[in-house]
Design a protein around this nucleic acid. Structure first.
Length: 298
DNA sequence: CTAGGATCCTGTCAGC
DNA sequence: TGCTGACAGGATCCTA
């Protein structure tokens, strides 16, 4: 999915489009994608908790949205508007520019000014959930979230790694109750930046390395947020051809077979904690380890 | 309690 | 071409 920078991009983008507008109708095309009773009301604020987006209405109800792997939110200002007046962000796909609704549209929110917010989600793992605003903090997902990298103290992060000493460090930093906001892309990028092999046991990470890893996580996500995460603008280039927004900042993610930007060694793809994982085998080494690295492909 | 694997679902791509 | 299996920017549930 959309990881923290993507959701933050969506929050900032939608902030310009839907605040003070009234949701007048909800169309649910897939029951699984919508939890609770559809709500009408004026949008007051947009909040983000880790990778979850919360839309607060003026009637004490909130919509909590989690995009999971393939969710995307696309706001269309309405008929008569130019196609590029659309705001789209989340999982990059052709749906950003498709005629909507399309096959992957799960929920449509209609606003009083004729605008529509489309919730698309190929794999149906994501959802929109209606709950009382004062219950948002008690939602099981939000309740278990740890601090974000910017709020986390270095010592605190180090102690958390120690607590999961037998897990691979990549698995540990993907755990939202350890540190919140990292997903598969930014985990790989942050580990590469800190020169830490993803299969290192969390308990073997030194204080210095933990500090570097935390700083790297902040840096990688800051950079992505400032470049707009995966939005329609970065997905469709000025000439109309498709572009991969990963090109903008990724050093290892999906760059297997290409040279490491730091040392030129070929980037490898391996499997760690059940997830595809990208490393530079020279920059990121298993210290003193005889453990073999399983190669997935070139 | 932790750690690892299966699972939800649809689509795409590599390999035969 | 058609089939098959692997895999995917996430999180939860189940097992040991």
């Amino acid at each position: 999915m959309p990881e923290l920078p993507e959701v933050e991009t969506i929050r900032r983008g939608l902030n310009k489009y839907i605040v003070h507008k009234k949701i007048i109708r909800t169309e649910v095309l897939c029951d699984k994608s919508f939890i609770g009773e559809p709500a009408t009301g004026v949008v007051k604020t947009l909040r983000r908790f880790g990778k979850a987006l919360v839309i607060d209405l003026d009637n004490s109800l909130s919509l909590m949205i989690h995009l999971r792997m393939t969710g995307q939110l696309i706001f269309d200002p309405g008929p008569g508007d130019k196609p590029d007046s659309r705001f789209a962000a989340g999982h990059p796909s052709d749906s950003f520019t498709d005629k909507l609704p399309n096959k992957q549209t799960r929920v449509i929110l209609e606003f009083d000014d004729g605008g529509h917010l489309f919730f698309n989600d190929q794999r149906k793992f994501g959802f929109i959930k209606v709950l009382p605003t004062n219950e948002v903090g008690n939602d099981p997902f939000i309740k278990k979230l740890a601090k974000e990298p910017w709020q986390m103290k270095e010592g605190e992060f180090y102690e958390k790694l120690k607590k999961h000493q037998n897990s691979c460090v990549k698995a540990t930093i993907l755990d939202q109750s350890v540190i919140c906001g990292l997903g598969n892309i930014y985990a790989d990028e942050a580990l590469f930046m800190s020169k830490i092999h993803p299969e290192r046991k969390s308990g073997s990470i030194t204080k210095k390395e933990a500090s570097l890893l935390l700083k790297s996580a902040r840096e990688v996500m800051d950079k992505s947020i400032s470049s707009g995460g995966s939005t329609m603008h970065t997905y469709v280039k000025a000439d109309g051809t498709k572009g991969d927004y990963l090109e903008l900042f990724a050093n290892v993610f999906r760059r297997n077979g290409k040279p490491c930007p730091r040392c030129g060694t070929e980037i490898q793809k391996i499997r760690v904690a059940g997830r595809g994982t990208h490393i530079c085998p020279k920059c990121q080494q298993l210290k003193g380890g005889s453990k073999s690295q399983r190669k997935v492909d070139s």
